[in-house]
Simulated assay, not measured.
Amino acid sequence: MSNPVFLALDLPRLDAAKELVNKVKAHIGGVKLGMEFFYAHGHHGVHEIAHCGLPIFLDLKLHDIPNTVAGAMQAIHVLEPAIVTVHAGGGRAMMEDAKAAAAEGTKVVGVTMLTSLDERDMTQTGIGGSSHDQVMRLAELADSAGLDGIVCSGHEVGAVHKQWKKGFFVVPGLRPAGSATGDQKRVVTPRQARDDGASVLVIGRPISKAADPVQAARDIEATL
């Protein structure tokens, strides 16, 4: 895609969300709609944002037994998402069924490790090893399950790209140089992530919370 930036749009008001997308759409490549947006506005909200004319990334992080995830994937066919996420930690069978149930043309990517987590968090949840090792394990599993790619931080995307040459890699938690990191712990700049092999750059607050969102989006686009 010519512009890999997907705006993470989690505004609680649909009218404000549409207004923001229409303001910045010349400087982004798509819109990511997460659980907060989807639970608040449902199918109607997704259709309203789709009218803005950009690809839709449904970041629903599906994670359940294989049959349930397959049913959920079939239920969103009508929304025609370009990308949908499932949790890679759901296992191979779940990922296989998710991909099999996805609409033609929809990329299914596995969330490996949230960018709000670090190795201390991993230890507290009983996961051994480093965050890098965990991402690499789940990337290999997602590839073997037939997914299109994974979601990982910019810290791991370079290594995953070397391992999975044809993978589709979504990198969230990005911050332009000098920006506050907020609740993100494993961040890089959009340029660095792109250089390391990211296919999609998910950027939210640096644009949506900026005093001038259009200028913020334009400035990020200029670095790519």
Rank of each mutant, 00 (worst) to 15 (best):
S2K: 14
S2C: 06
N3W: 14
V5T: 05
V5Y: 03
F6G: 01
A8P: 04
L11W: 01
L11Y: 02
P12C: 08
P12M: 07
L14V: 04
D15F: 00
A17S: 15
K18H: 13
L20K: 00
K23E: 14
V24W: 08
K25Q: 08
H27M: 02
H27P: 00
G29V: 10
G30C: 10
G30W: 07
L33R: 01
G34S: 12
M35D: 09
E36S: 07
F37A: 08
Y39K: 08
A40G: 08
G42D: 08
G45C: 12
V46L: 13
V46K: 06
I49D: 01
A50V: 13
A50M: 12
H51S: 14
I56R: 13
F57R: 00
L58N: 05
K61F: 09
K61T: 03
L62G: 04
L62I: 04
D64L: 07
I65F: 15
P66V: 14
P66E: 13
V69M: 10
A70C: 04
A70H: 05
A72E: 06
A72N: 07
M73A: 09
L79R: 01
I83C: 10
V84H: 04
V86T: 11
V86M: 12
H87Q: 06
H87N: 08
G90W: 07
A93F: 09
A93R: 15
M95A: 14
M95F: 11
A98V: 09
A98M: 11
A102M: 11
A103D: 10
G105M: 04
G105L: 06
K107W: 01
V109P: 03
V109A: 05
V111D: 07
T112F: 15
L114R: 02
S116G: 12
L117V: 07
I127D: 10
G129Q: 03
Q134G: 03
Q134E: 05
R137K: 14
R137N: 10
L138F: 12
A142S: 15
D143C: 08
S144N: 04
A145L: 07
G146M: 13
D148S: 01
C152Q: 14
G154L: 00
G154V: 00
G154M: 01
H155C: 05
E156R: 01
G158I: 09
G158T: 08
V160T: 12
V160W: 11
K162Q: 12
Q163M: 15
W164S: 09
W164E: 02
W164L: 15
K166C: 03
V170Y: 09
V170R: 11
V171D: 01
P172R: 03
R175C: 13
R175M: 11
A180G: 06
T181G: 06
G182C: 04
R186S: 07
R186M: 09
V188E: 00
P190H: 00
R191N: 02
R191S: 02
Q192E: 11
A193Q: 05
A193H: 02
R194Y: 01
G197E: 10
S199Q: 06
S199T: 15
V200S: 04
L201Y: 08
V202K: 14
V202M: 05
G204V: 08
G204P: 12
R205S: 15
R205G: 13
I207T: 09
A210L: 12
A211F: 00
A211C: 00
D212E: 13
I220K: 06
E221M: 14
